[in-house]
């Protein structure tokens, strides 16, 4: 198999998908069967999945459609950023649950990407440049962080309710991180996501002026993204200034991520927008 064959969208996707699937499956079994060794193995498999995708990207897997971007490549890049954030948290907190969640989410994104590997939306040369890279890079990184803030927040809300209502921690819940750790993960993710999201939005606005003829064009994606930014600003401010901890920021982080998913899935795919990936 030549390098070009290896880097073809289908081959590189299958290769990476297999490692993602291994990490996700081993992690899930490790969680359900409560086996520490399997969970640890899943974390290293997630490292392998990240390394595999990074290597393929570095070799040029992303360049299969030099004139445009496919929805498939877009989702796979998102998976890469989610895993990057998961690895960052794993290195910081040594908790396997967020990384296993990141691997599973990455796997879902990869599976979603498979039907959309070839339909590239052509990008005019004016759209290629540092602002575009900054726009996509910063927003994807913040989305990855928001995904993990969501996971930590949702888990916090669930476990907190059990502790408050004095229910027994049985089965897999016994292996979950402590409430304080989940709150810290949520805080770090949300506090890092906000400046990155701001950077992404600002880069997008700069970039929109020459391309779409104005900064604020009323595009549905732009509207939802500004709403997400506003909510993130509220979360950022209250975490830092008002000392928000626990339930409130967890709920808001969960809501912000769900809104982002709505923006990603519904707006990008089904609505008439400048960010559309599927054009007939």
């Amino acid at each position: 198999m030549s390098l070009a064959d290896l880097l073809a969208p289908e081959t590189s996707t299958v290769l990476t998908l297999v490692v993602y699937a291994l990490a996700g499956a081993v992690g899930l079994v490790g969680m359900l069967a409560r086996r520490t060794a399997l969970r640890r193995a899943a974390c290293w498999l997630a490292v392998a999945a990240f390394a595999c995708q990074t290597l393929l990207l570095a070799l040029g897997a992303h360049a299969s459609h030099p004139d445009g971007l496919t929805l498939g490549a877009y989702l796979q890049m998102l998976a890469w950023f989610v895993l990057l954030c998961g690895l960052g948290l794993w290195a910081r907190f040594r908790q396997d649950a967020p990384l296993i969640f990141a691997a599973l989410l990455g796997l879902i994104l990869f599976l979603m990407s498979t039907p959309w590997l070839d339909d590239a939306v052509p990008l005019p040369p004016s759209l290629r440049g540092p602002f575009f890279a900054l726009h996509i890079g910063a927003l994807f990184l913040s989305l990855g962080l928001l995904a993990l803030a969501f996971a930590a927040g949702a888990l916090f809300l669930f476990l907190e309710r059990r502790i408050k209502s004095k229910q027994r921690m049985a089965g897999i819940w016994q292996d979950m991180p402590a409430l304080a750790v989940l709150d810290k993960i949520n805080a770090i993710c949300a506090l890092t996501a906000f400046p990155l999201y701001t950077l992404g939005i600002v880069a997008g606005l700069f970039w929109a002026r020459p391309v779409f003829g104005g900064t604020l064009t009323g595009d549905p994606k732009q509207v939802v993204s500004l709403l997400v930014w506003l909510l993130l600003a509220v979360l950022f401010h209250n975490r830092l200034a008002s000392g928000w901890k626990g339930r409130k920021p967890a709920r808001l982080a969960v809501f912000i991520f769900l809104l982002s998913v709505f923006s990603l899935v519904v707006v990008n795919v089904f609505m008439e927008t400048q960010h559309a990936f599927l054009r007939g």
């Binding site: 502790i163 402590a178 409430l179 304080a180």
Partner: peptide
């Protein structure tokens, strides 16, 4: 044990 579930370390 409950304290550990809340605070961790």
């Amino acid at each position: 044990e409950l304290a550990r579930r809340i605070f961790g370390d």
